[in-house]
């Protein structure tokens, strides 16, 4: 595939401010509750039936929920596991879990917490759930750098081995959380929600609520 070949955002979701959006529609909302309770509410709304979810750290829980919205719910990606890539980024790395682990150091810290003290574990959890065995990358940057993510995703498609890529932002620290994920492929899939894969659309969806991009 050449660098100039058209790519599309086939689906997108945004989770934050106790709301979950699927493409342009508000999918779930639970105002006035702690983030953990909101995530359990969203898990139930998605009817996930995935007990392992309860054992994950909060970043992985958030990422798996967001991934479920753009990859689950009856979506057929129609490609091999090795053709499915994940490119994620955030600004707080695994700090939310790191802090929890450090707080346990006075006694015996939990091995189950320790295994989540890396940010890219969320990519692994999504991969296990959705059978992704292609390219993987996780970046930490102070702000969402969609230009960089766009270029990176373009590059892995150009390599010719990737047919679908889950990409975006998954960040959590305390009560502040935001997951904005996009499903990208070369297939326009005739969906009304399908849009051209470019930095403007990435930013526009990311900052939609704030109205920062017209």
């Amino acid at each position: 595939m050449s660098h100039t070949q058209q790519l599309y955002i086939n689906a997108a979701c945004r989770i934050g401010n106790n709301q979950a959006w699927k493409d342009g529609q508000l999918f779930f909302e639970q105002a006035g509750v702690p983030g953990d309770e909101f995530m359990v509410g969203l898990y139930r709304k998605l009817n996930l039936q995935y007990p392992k979810w309860y054992k994950m750290d909060r970043l992985s829980k958030l990422g798996v929920l967001a991934a479920e919205i753009v990859l689950g719910m009856g979506v057929n990606l129609n490609c091999q596991p090795g053709e499915k890539a994940i490119v994620l980024a955030n600004s707080h790395s695994s700090l939310d879990t790191d802090a929890r682990f450090v707080s346990q150091m006075e006694e015996i810290p939990s091995p189950a917490v320790f295994v989540y003290t890396l940010p890219n574990i969320v990519s692994g959890e999504i991969s296990i759930r959705h059978c992704f065995k292609g390219e993987q990358a996780f970046f930490v940057s102070s702000r969402p750098d969609m230009e960089f993510l766009y270029s990176y995703v373009r590059a892995i498609f150009a390599d010719g081995r990737t047919r679908v890529c889950l990409m975006g932002w998954a960040d959590i620290l305390g009560e502040q959380f935001n997951a904005t994920l996009y499903r990208v492929s070369a297939d326009s899939d005739d969906s009304v929600h399908s849009m051209e894969f470019n930095t403007q659309n990435l930013y526009q969806y990311f900052y939609h609520e704030q109205g920062a991009v017209s």
Binding site: E107, I108, S110, P111, A112, V115
Partner: peptide
């Protein structure tokens, strides 16, 4: 296997 480690910690704590 991670749960097994948790069980060891549980026994100890």
């Amino acid at each position: 296997s991670i749960d097994a480690l948790e069980l060891i910690v549980l026994m100890q704590q």
